[in-house]
Amino acid sequence: MIKDITIGQYFPGKSFLHSLDARDKLCLTFAFIVMIFVCKNFFSLAVMLLLALLMSLLSRIPARTILKSFRPILPIIILTSALQLYYNDSGTVWFEYWKFKLTSGGVFTAIFMAVRICTLILVSSLLTYTTSPTLLTDAIERLLSPLKIFKVKVHTLAMMMTIALRFIPTLIDEIDRIMSAQKARGADFETGSLITRARALIPIFVPLFVSSFKRAYELAFAMECRCYRGGEGRTRMRKMKFSWRDYAAIAFFCGCFAAVIYLNISFEHLI
């Protein structure tokens, strides 16, 4: 059950999207998310959706895997759409029953919202699917490095993120193990009231915290043994370099963003 979560997972590969510079991907994803919220009508949203679909094709990630990442946020999409259907009574009335009114405005806004959220999820999962966590944190560190003049410890933050990501699978395994061990002693996690169930988590979380702290000390010790002393004077193993693909991607994105702004201005209404 815990192991089915694919958000934030990395799928190694050699596609066009994999080969892009991590800094480039990070900035473009960020810009893309901003642009999704700039979209005012279906025409500009369509441009963004097509761009997102093109990227998924270029990532060579199987469609099934991508679709799986939508599952956890499905309730949010349904809820937002339902609220739009109920509260929005602009446009023509198509159907009326008691207090409930189905209007064209409501339906269009609901679809608009759903597509917007889906595009958002699609693009952000593509980023983590095609970029390894180490590259991603490396990119964050480099992009944030100007903040050093304000005495922000960028390297430390990036290292913390790398370690946190690295230990997620380890912790999941650990939880599985502890749960089995406590079940063998008759612990019951599935029945009882909310309070009983919350209390049943104590036998899992106490051992989990104890071993996490122990692991943290061991890791710190191992890092010190290898002379780690923070970012100062530390050289990098990996050089990050923009290739023609990165410039091409930026140019293409800029074109799409220009189209979005043009379409926003030309069409005043949602559809």
Binding site: R177, A184, G186
Partner: peptide, 26 residues
């Protein structure tokens, strides 16, 4: 009664007595 590998990781109670009692109480 199954006791896993490295079972010391499953201890969680405040005293040894309470921890041993976890199974019988359940």
């Amino acid at each position: 009664g199954l006791c896993f590998q490295y079972p010391e990781y499953q201890l969680f109670e405040s005293t040894v007595y309470k921890d041993i009692a976890f199974g019988p109480v359940n």
